[in-house]
Computed example of a mutant assay.
Amino acid sequence: MSLRCSSLIVLTLCGLLLNGLLLFWKLTDPELSVAGCGGGGCSAVLGSRWSQVFGIPVVAPGLVVYGLLLAALLWRKDFLASFCYASIGGAALWFIFAQVVFLRQFCPWCMAAHAVGCAVACIGLMEKPLKAGLQSGAAAVFGLALGQWYGPVPATHRITSEAQAHGTPPAAIHERGEGRKVAYDGGRKSFNVSTLPRIGSADARHVLIEYHDFQCPACRKMSGFLGALVEKHPEDICIILLPVPLDRACNSQLKPTDEGHPGS
């Protein structure tokens, strides 16, 4: 076995380990299982929409491809190896691009996995890979990118049993004063459209409620979409804006059991 092949096998095992670790975190950390949640760094990246495609964590197919590459190296399947070089390297570049351009935050573990992927691709390309395999791998990465860009956006909220267990609250501060009132959740939540901070007309046909955090990257991105929505339908859409900081330094109302999210 050549030194180049041995290096590829070692890197492939590293890729399997890193992708397996990231998948474990993605599936077991409840904060990461909902896209858009997380305070920053690893949580922001692993909890973003770019960490999934059609509801599947992207590290799952990554594990499969690394497994295929290991088999291709051990049993000398040139087409399969070429496919893996292109798909692993292309995916690494795509997700580095997503962190730099879309998220502007970085997960060290993800970047380590991408570095391994780039190394695998560079060494693999020195092995005179088959053109058909490279084209197939590039097409797979292109399909992944299209699926994330145009496919369904993962849900960014969760309805928990704790939230459902609350009884009818007393008259909320959000409905105080004169003006138009709207109610949600069977009347358990009421809001005064006329007096609360909002964008859009208080007489709009549809009223949305946004709970947001000024330091939350996902909220910051969503604000642009909501502003564009109101601008497009100024008479039909109104959005009530309610800030809910998740940093204990900004919000003394967080429960003692809530660790909070510094920087959010």
Rank of each mutant, 00 (worst) to 15 (best):
A44F: 01
A249S: 14
G147W: 02
L254D: 01
G40H: 14
Y85I: 07
C107R: 05
L8S: 05
L208F: 02
Y150L: 15
M111T: 15
P129N: 06
V207Y: 07
I9S: 05
K189R: 14
S223I: 09
G147Y: 04
G151P: 15
H166C: 09
E259D: 12
S2T: 14
P61I: 05
V141T: 14
L17R: 09
I96N: 09
V10P: 01
W109G: 02
F83Q: 04
V10G: 00
F24D: 03
S43K: 13
V207E: 03
E210L: 02
A171P: 01
V100M: 10
P170K: 10
R104M: 10
G62E: 01
C219E: 01
I209K: 02
I239D: 04
T168D: 06
A60P: 11
E231D: 15
K181C: 02
D247S: 04
N251V: 08
V230Q: 09
H261F: 12
V141E: 04
V193N: 00
C216N: 02
E231N: 15
L146I: 15
H114F: 11
G90D: 06
C84H: 04
Q105A: 13
V116W: 04
V65N: 00
N251Q: 08
H157D: 12
G36L: 10
P245R: 01
C37W: 12
H174M: 13
Q52Y: 10
D258E: 11
H166V: 14
T28P: 03
A155I: 12
V59M: 06
M1F: 13
A113P: 10
H206R: 11
I9T: 09
R188F: 02
S87W: 00
F95E: 05
L241D: 06
Q253E: 03
I159D: 09
A71G: 04
A249E: 15
N19A: 13
G38A: 01
N192W: 01
G263M: 03
R176H: 12
K255F: 12
V244Y: 05
A218F: 01
G47F: 02
T156Q: 12
S190M: 10
C250V: 12
G186W: 05
S2G: 09
V10C: 00
G137P: 14
A121K: 03
L23T: 11
G47W: 02
C122D: 00
A71E: 05
G167H: 11
L73P: 08
Y184Q: 12
F24C: 08
C84S: 13
C37A: 11
V10T: 06
L8K: 03
L27P: 10
Q52M: 10
P61Q: 10
A140F: 07
A35P: 11
G67S: 09
L130T: 13
V230H: 00
C14I: 14
A165F: 00
T195K: 14
L130K: 15
A163H: 13
L134Q: 07
S51H: 08
N19K: 06
Q105Y: 03
A98Q: 15
C14S: 14
C107K: 01
T12R: 06
C5A: 05
D203I: 14
V34Q: 07
C14K: 10
I159Y: 00
G151T: 13
K189E: 11
I88V: 09
Y184F: 15
E162L: 15
H157C: 10
L226H: 05
C238I: 07
G15I: 03
A140T: 14
C37P: 00
L3S: 09
S252L: 12
V34S: 02
